[in-house]
Simulated scan of single mutants.
Amino acid sequence: MVRVSGDLSPLASLLSVYAGEDAPRHRLVWTLDARFARLVATTSEPMIGQMRLAWWNDALTDESGVKGQGEPLIDAMRKLEMAPPHGLSQWLDGWEALIGEVDLLAYAEGRGGGLFRALAGRDDIPSWLVQAGAVWALWDLAGHIGDGAVAGKAVAMARAHLLTGKPVWPGEWRPLRIAYHLARHDIEKGHFSPPGLTPALYLRLMRVALMGR
């Protein structure tokens, strides 16, 4: 078995459990997102970062299965027939929006929308789910970017994008619903995401999983 769990955070690992039989695919999606995050965080030259993101796009969309062969994550995704993942182009555009001059809106809609499309396993998701993904992405960024001003802007933008009404979350989207409501709880209080799976975040996750929010 190919093991690619090194980049999987405790929160992502726990969220994936709620995907049931689809958990292996969710774990790979979260692992890929973590790989993109690390790529962007270690990029000092925008052009180099764009080239590295382009490599992932080319490898994951290569129908011949040759490009990227030997990269454990890509091999694992091909084994599950999920390469390319849904929303890949949007997802990569979102991460690219953090390279150089930060474009928070492009990042939120791109990373969040692309990630939630990949987790949902389909491209034709409702606009409110893309919005929910954007909220989650801004919350996550706020706790990891290390720039207080940008983090504050991210939380303010996320608050403006919180869902209104009560959308119906299909059962298979339970991990996405949990992720969104975890973010919403902090955003409504003006808080950033915690640096890891803290006891308080774990308890909130359990409550959301059991009670819906």
Rank of each mutant, 00 (worst) to 15 (best):
V135L: 10
G143W: 02
D33N: 06
M51Q: 15
L53G: 00
M82N: 13
P199D: 10
K79L: 15
L39H: 13
T31H: 06
W55M: 04
S16I: 08
P194D: 09
G65M: 10
A149T: 14
P85R: 05
L129S: 14
I74Q: 03
V150R: 09
A183N: 05
H191M: 14
W139Q: 04
R122M: 03
P24I: 14
A200G: 09
W173Y: 15
H144V: 06
S193Q: 09
R27K: 07
L15N: 00
P195Q: 13
Q50H: 07
M211E: 12
H191T: 13
A156C: 03
G68I: 03
L14H: 00
K67L: 10
H161I: 05
G112I: 13
T61Q: 04
L15V: 10
A106V: 04
A179C: 00
L115P: 06
K166R: 15
E101L: 11
Q69C: 15
K189D: 15
V66Y: 08
N57E: 14
G113A: 12
A149D: 15
D33E: 12
W173N: 13
A54V: 05
D93V: 14
P72A: 00
G165C: 05
A156I: 05
A158E: 09
R25Q: 13
E21W: 01
A34E: 07
A59K: 00
K79G: 14
S89K: 14
G6S: 10
G49A: 08
S89V: 12
H26N: 02
I178D: 07
G49C: 13
A151S: 01
A19G: 12
L182G: 12
L141H: 05
G121R: 01
W136C: 01
L176P: 01
L32P: 05
